[in-house]
Design a protein around this nucleic acid. Structure first.
Lengths: 345, 345
DNA sequence: CTGAAAGCGCTTACAG
DNA sequence: CTGAAAGCGCTTACAG
């Protein structure tokens, strides 16, 4: 059953069938109705590939979750609560506009080949990248090839010309880190440590900066031993805390994401310390888990759903209007106060 | 840049280019190399739609997460930890075979139209369904139209002819529920309640049956008041426990999934009771959250990753061999004992 | 408002 | 081993 069959049955030409399907104006209402009925009766659906070949755009967007490291349990980060709500929000937003989303997980550098191919072979007409390190060359190449791309959490500096053709959606990592640290200071903490995220990622760098600014404002001297590197995985949080507490005795730690807090809590418990009595903790992300932890985790909420909507809707808009347009959003974050911090007397 | 351009540059015909790309035998090694080089040099990638139109199968499979209810917080269930690992496992398995996955979330009945369209317009060559109620008519229609489908957690009874052309992957809900309940009995519990899942789903029914069997074996009379209906959402777990504890005083509850346990724990806490001192709890699923709860939740682990691999690999195989084949797997589950149950003296 | 025809970029018998 | 040609199922100027 194809357009010719429908045309024959309806007693019109294939052109007319096509016009009805594409909802063009120049068809008599009567003809339109007749064709529509027959389409419905025979359950006809146009062949998507044929439509594309003949000039229609793909209504598929790609969602690429970049995750080049496992935690030591062999769990991919993508399994983690962080990406899941983002993914479903993208799907939701896309489906509402009759778009579909094809998602893949990029674990190794070579997985980018698959991603490239999806753009080049026209399977997808646009793509969203989340989770990568800053200025990932593979992403830049794709943008430079003229494809529509939205990136989440990528720094756009002046040298980064390519991003000036894409949609950038960032949360306010700097502001969030600043607020989180300031909150600890306001509670009376002075010995405030920081566990960083993966410093190849923009967010991790900004969070360090936010932390430093708050300390500076609070007149608290910055001490290098109080900053320990992590990489956003639970395991790295565990190790970082163990390392930190070997030499230092902070009363509070601002940790660059919630996953690392999980590891941190385990480490702290193993050391026989209590949260928040001995150590206060603030995380970042507000993953689903956060509110179920004991104590419930104080953390900075990233409005991932909004970010997904912004990225998806703008990307589809750019695609529909056949332009690469530039947009750069910085989405505000919110400190969610729960039970993992105590007030110093 | 298309196949003709490549052919021209390489000094061969388009047929030969095509043969090289498709890795057919009948090309001189020399010619093959030359063409390959030029393809690489010009970064040529064949147009997927053209390939499909000309007879190649789509290398995209659909993943359809059926979730026709929200919990009362407006969170879609798909956001929940349950589907996330399954999704990434499907993507992983597919990507390994150079397939891609397009996923959508089915919230309302009309979303099935989109799903149907993806099959009918040949965007996808096969699809996996998870989360639906039993014998969902829309799924059956698709199977009957001859498309390759894998279903997760669907009962296949004798009347269900359609499923005899599809791949069915179920976990052993009955066995898991039986083990869970038996475990409580072995701990000395007698007043064991059950909160059911959504009874339109196969899994929920089987779990009730497993619960009943264990009681029967243990010589514990079945009491209707001890079974309260839920629908797998956190909120329903909360309400069910409130309702249950109005009239009954169970010392243990077997709850049909972990999400409902979350609600149950909240309800129990509000009533001033302690887990496991006053009430023991066993869940089902072993979502990521389960081990972080306080107390860590004893629950039945479903090997979702295995199930995802089975479904995906079999589906791709069926697709490659251009057959609908039937397979019906029942995957064993495992009771994970943590801290939410106590031994009765 | 409608139809005939060209063209999208491939693959695959068919012939040699 | 290789090429010319038909065909996949649409859309879109073009002409009327």
């Amino acid at each position: 059953m194809n357009a010719s069959d429908i045309a024959k049955i309806a007693g019109v030409s294939r052109s007319t069938v096509s016009r009805v399907i594409n909802n063009y104006g120049n068809v008599t209402e009567e003809t339109r109705q007749r064709v529509l009925e027959i389409i419905k009766e025979y359950n006809y659906v146009p062949h998507a590939s044929a439509q594309m070949l003949a000039g229609k755009k793909s209504r598929i967007i790609g969602l690429f979750i970049i995750d080049t490291k496992d935690d030591n349990h062999g769990n991919k980060m993508c399994t983690s609560s962080y990406f899941s709500p983002f993914t479903s929000a993208v799907i939701d937003a896309a489906n509402k506009q009759r778009y579909n989303v094809l998602s893949t997980i990029v674990n190794e550098q070579q997985d980018f080949n698959n991603v490239r191919e999806l753009f080049y072979n026209k399977t997808i007409s646009a793509g969203i990248f989340i989770g990568g390190k800053n200025s990932e060359p593979s992403i830049i190449e794709i943008i430079e090839s003229g494809y529509n791309v939205a990136v989440i959490e990528q720094e756009v500096s002046n040298e980064q010309e390519p991003f000036s053709r894409s949609i950038v959606v960032n949360s306010d990592s700097f502001g969030g880190a600043y607020e989180a640290t300031k909150y600890l200071i306001q509670l009376g903490h002075i010995a405030i440590a920081h566990i960083t995220g993966d410093l190849e990622q923009f967010t991790a760098i900004s969070r360090v900066e936010g932390y430093k600014k708050a300390l500076a404002e609070g007149g608290i001297p910055l001490r290098n031993n109080m900053i320990v590197k992590g990489n956003y995985t639970e395991e790295s949080g565990y190790k970082a805390v163990k390392k930190l507490l070997l030499k230092e005795t902070p009363t509070a730690i601002f940790i660059a994401n919630d996953s690392m807090c999980l590891g941190a809590m385990r480490a702290i418990e193993e050391l026989g310390l209590k949260i928040p009595e001995d150590i206060s903790l603030v995380g970042f992300d507000d993953i689903e888990l956060a509110r179920y932890l004991q104590p419930a985790l104080t953390t900075v909420r990233i409005p991932l759903l909004n970010m997904a909507f912004m990225a998806t809707n703008n990307l589809i808009k750019a695609n529909e209007e056949e332009i690469n347009f530039y947009a750069n959003y910085k989405i505000p974050v919110e400190l969610i106060i729960r039970d993992s911090c105590r007030k110093m007397k």
